[in-house]
Computed example of a mutant assay.
Amino acid sequence: MHRLPCLRRSSTSELALHLLCALTPIAEHCDDWRPIVATRAGKKRSLRFRAIGKLESAPFSSPGDDTVGYLAETGPLPLRLEQIVTSPELNFRPSGGGRLLLQALDLDVTADPSNVPATDSPLAQEFLRRLRHIINGADTAQVERLVVGQRAMPSDGRTIAGPLTSAPWLYVVATHSGITLAPFLGESVADEVLGKEREELDPFRPDRFHNQSPYILTADYGSLSGDH
């Protein structure tokens, strides 16, 4: 019998790591093993599972590429918002304590993690101008935080969904645009985990990376800062 470690006040990621280590020797002797552990792991979460040389996130290459984008957070505002708002010039959502988190894709052309504009920069003022144009109650808004978010994105830009060839009991899902794809991926992945194969996912299998180096499954701990 394999005993699982007892964890007290552990994070979800730490629990997933311990379960992975404990279940690996069991899975190696079970031909019909089904994955039972899932963890949400982004670019900077505390736990990342990766296949070195195979499933790495796309790296930042130049300002404005697809892996980066600006995020501006306002100070507390006298308005109530409980939904995501999208518009041609600005997207924003609640960020806690009356704050709003702002995004504008057309402004990302200069985004560079090593050169983040100040909160009183022309870029920050443009975020505020657009916000005031869209929503009432933002006249006193100020940008308190301006960052360059780094997107968790597969290296070829396409969704990954399926079991690892080197560990068929481990089902991997990695994608960008998770909000828009979640309804489809949630249903499809659930079907596959329960034994029903979904042909729609065939073009997105981890196997497409097989012409590269062999899989090496690793886990590492990073910062707890949020993902883009």
Rank of each mutant, 00 (worst) to 15 (best):
H2Q: 14
H2M: 13
R3S: 14
L4W: 10
L7S: 09
R8M: 14
T12R: 14
L15G: 07
A16Q: 05
L19A: 06
C21S: 07
D31R: 09
D32Q: 13
T39A: 15
T39W: 02
R40G: 03
G42W: 04
R45W: 11
L47F: 11
R48A: 12
A51L: 15
A51Q: 08
K54T: 13
K54A: 14
L55P: 00
A58T: 03
A58K: 15
P59A: 00
P63K: 00
D65K: 02
D65N: 03
V68T: 13
L71C: 12
A72T: 02
T74S: 13
P76K: 00
L77A: 03
P78H: 04
R80M: 10
E82D: 14
S87L: 07
S87D: 12
P88E: 05
F92S: 05
R93N: 03
S95K: 10
G96V: 02
G98Y: 01
L100K: 03
D106E: 15
V109I: 11
P113C: 03
V116A: 06
L123D: 00
L123Q: 05
Q125V: 00
Q125D: 11
Q125N: 10
L128H: 08
I134T: 12
N136G: 11
A138W: 00
Q142F: 08
E144C: 04
L146H: 04
V148P: 02
A152R: 03
T159Y: 00
S177G: 09
S177R: 05
S177E: 14
I179Q: 07
I179M: 09
P183W: 06
F184K: 10
L185Q: 09
G186I: 07
S188W: 11
V189A: 05
A190E: 02
D191K: 15
E192Y: 07
V193M: 14
L194I: 01
G195V: 02
E197G: 00
E199R: 13
F204C: 08
R205M: 10
P206D: 08
D207V: 04
R208V: 12
N211S: 13
S223M: 09
L224Q: 12
G226W: 07
H228F: 14
